[in-house]
């Protein structure tokens, strides 16, 4: 690490920084920081190359694959992973009701992708849902119930919101 600026960011409200050693290297993958250093294993690794979306998190409210984000780029950012999603987020109940989780390994990333969509488009069309989740691969459900869950959560959200970030 050389003349880079001070490195500090939050993950689910907890501060990580180079100064206090909680960020050991700027080149570390955000995924490894979340799973190995923060010990929050809800974010999964399915491919390690940004194809499957199982590691998806929100960086300043925008969806990102944490396997492709070096933590050195996160100074000043707010990172939210599945552990930072409120338990009462409408997506949680909607996914359960619809049967949108089967094996569950893609589900946390899928929920984060859905949250990012609803935060920018609270009442998406089915087509918008299909497109927004296209970076999150699921091999169990065929996506049908996931689409239904997101539309259901959107319908229930009204003006109350439910954002994580």
């Amino acid at each position: 690490m050389s003349e880079g600026p001070v490195l500090s960011f939050t993950l689910n409200g907890r501060v990580f920084s180079a100064a206090d050693g909680t960020v050991p290297s700027p080149a570390m993958r955000l995924l490894d920081l979340i799973r190995l250093h923060a010990g929050q294993t809800g974010t999964k690794e399915g491919c390690g190359e940004g194809e499957c979306g199982a590691c998806a998190v929100l960086v300043d409210g925008e969806l990102a694959n944490s396997c492709l984000v070096p933590v050195g780029q996160l100074h000043g950012c707010t990172v939210t992973s599945i552990e930072g999603l409120p338990r009462n987020d409408p997506l949680v109940a909607a996914f359960a009701r619809a049967g949108a989780a089967q094996c569950g390994i893609c589900t946390p990333g899928m929920v984060m992708a859905a949250r990012a969509l609803l935060d920018r488009d609270p009442h998406p069309t089915l087509e918008a849902v299909r497109e927004a989740l296209a970076g999150n691969l699921c091999r169990c459900t065929g996506y049908v119930r996931i689409h239904a869950a997101v539309l259901d959560a959107a319908a229930g959200e009204g003006t109350a919101g439910g954002g994580a970030s």
Partner: peptide, 8 residues
Amino acid sequence: DAAAKILG
């Protein structure tokens, strides 16, 4: 197993 999987 829904809730545990959805919440990670």
